[in-house]
């Protein structure tokens, strides 16, 4: 199942996901305010939003 889906990966969407996640990480690098668990939630959010937008 994964193989079939991997072909559908849109580069622009992946770019935007990378942009959003790295920005989030850089911010947290300085302030260390967000826990790992919350970071994972936020990252999932970014992925889901971007993928939905690209449809």
């Amino acid at each position: 199942m994964n193989e079939a889906l991997k072909q559908e990966i849109d580069k622009k969407t992946l770019d935007m996901i990378e942009f959003g996640i790295l920005r989030l990480e850089r911010k947290n690098e300085r302030t260390h305010e967000v826990s790992d668990g919350d970071m994972i939630k936020k990252i999932c959010n970014i992925i889901e939003k971007e993928v939905e937008r690209s449809k």
Binding site: D15, M16, F19, G20, R23, R26, K27
Partner: peptide, 18 residues
């Protein structure tokens, strides 16, 4: 400001380094 940065990336493909 972050919204603008994101739009900049989306529309003009420019990533600014922090």
């Amino acid at each position: 400001y972050e919204f603008l940065e994101e739009l900049n990336m989306r529309l003009y493909g420019v990533m600014d380094e922090d």
